[in-house]
Amino acid sequence: MIEIHKEENFFVVLSQRLDAMNADDAKETVTQELVDIDRNIVIDVSGLEYISSAGLQVVLKCAKLAQESHKECFLKGAHGTVKEIFQVSGFLTFLKEME
């Protein structure tokens, strides 16, 4: 599941499962909502229980959209095996972790 909140940053809240079954819809949502943004993106995965490579594509899209707008993309709340997925995939080399 995905929710996007516009506050001091854009908060992209990912929860439950993000996999091949729902990643295309989530990617479409971020593509529509995060174009020409004027603030940074924080991807909150504290409620995310499972992410696969399809789900990582959604995160990658967020990072690319931030980069295109010369903004930064942060990752918040990664834990357990979900965090390991971000580590082994190399995503923590371009996503800054936020407490």
């Binding site: 696969s52 490579s53 594509q57 990658l60 690319k64 997925i85 082994v88 995939s89 371009f94």
Partner: peptide, 21 residues
């Protein structure tokens, strides 16, 4: 090997995860 965000192509991560996990 991924060097830069712009170089990461969409797709292709799945098998890398399989090998890693």
């Amino acid at each position: 090997e991924q060097k830069d965000l712009a170089d990461i192509k969409e797709g292709g991560l799945g098998l890398f995860l399989v090998e890693s996990m």
